[in-house]
């Protein structure tokens, strides 16, 4: 958590938020107003969100995961696979009430930059925004993925190394596939 005495000015931040719940958007309206953020575009679907991003590139995108007809995972995949480098590199903050381990893991694996669990608060949003500002993620580009390095951990990496041709990561594939099926 950044020091409470340290001040940040969010008034120039340009944000796109997507959530298909009207009241989730209302919560974000309140939080962003309290943070003096003025340039916010609100979208109620993944399709509208991607169109808004393409029309005018924001500084950051805030994405809900469980949306219909296209969920947030699909939106993040599309952003990370976009032809435009600027769009591919967008910081993406996932804001979700679906905080089970498979859901979070899947969000990470499709390319979320940071994850914030609902209920949202000024403190939580402030903390993630400042963290994303001060600690930008390294990106990884491989044949099937472009996005933030998914191996971020302060504890170091103790598993087997898939980048060196290992398959340890497949151990978890079943639970993640099950979750992916649920959200489709």
């Amino acid at each position: 958590m950044p020091s409470p005495s340290h001040r940040y000015n969010f008034s120039d931040l340009d944000i796109i938020v997507v959530d298909d719940s009207e009241f989730a958007l209302e919560i974000m309206r309140i939080i962003f107003a309290a943070m003096n953020i003025k340039k916010v575009r609100y979208c109620s679907s993944s399709v509208d969100c991607l169109a808004a991003i393409i029309k005018n590139l924001p500084d950051i995108v805030v994405v809900d995961l469980l949306m219909k007809p296209k969920n947030g995972y699909e939106l993040i995949r599309r952003i990370r696979a976009h032809a435009s480098e600027d769009i591919r590199h967008l910081p993406i903050l996932v804001a979700t009430a679906y905080s089970s381990a498979p859901a979070i893991r899947l969000a990470r694996d499709v390319g979320a930059s940071e994850i914030l669990c609902k209920p949202l608060s000024v403190e939580g949003v402030y903390d993630r925004f400042v963290h994303m500002r001060n600690h930008p993620r390294q990106f990884v580009k491989i044949a099937e993925y472009v996005g933030p390095d998914r191996r971020r951990t302060l504890r170091g990496f103790e598993g087997m190394d898939r980048r060196a041709g290992d398959t340890a990561g497949e151990l978890d594939a079943n639970s993640e596939q099950k979750h992916a099926k649920e959200v489709r």
Partner: peptide, 12 residues
Amino acid sequence: LREAIGEGDGPS
């Protein structure tokens, strides 16, 4: 984001 989020001013 470093350009978009200023430091040193704004509400606490």
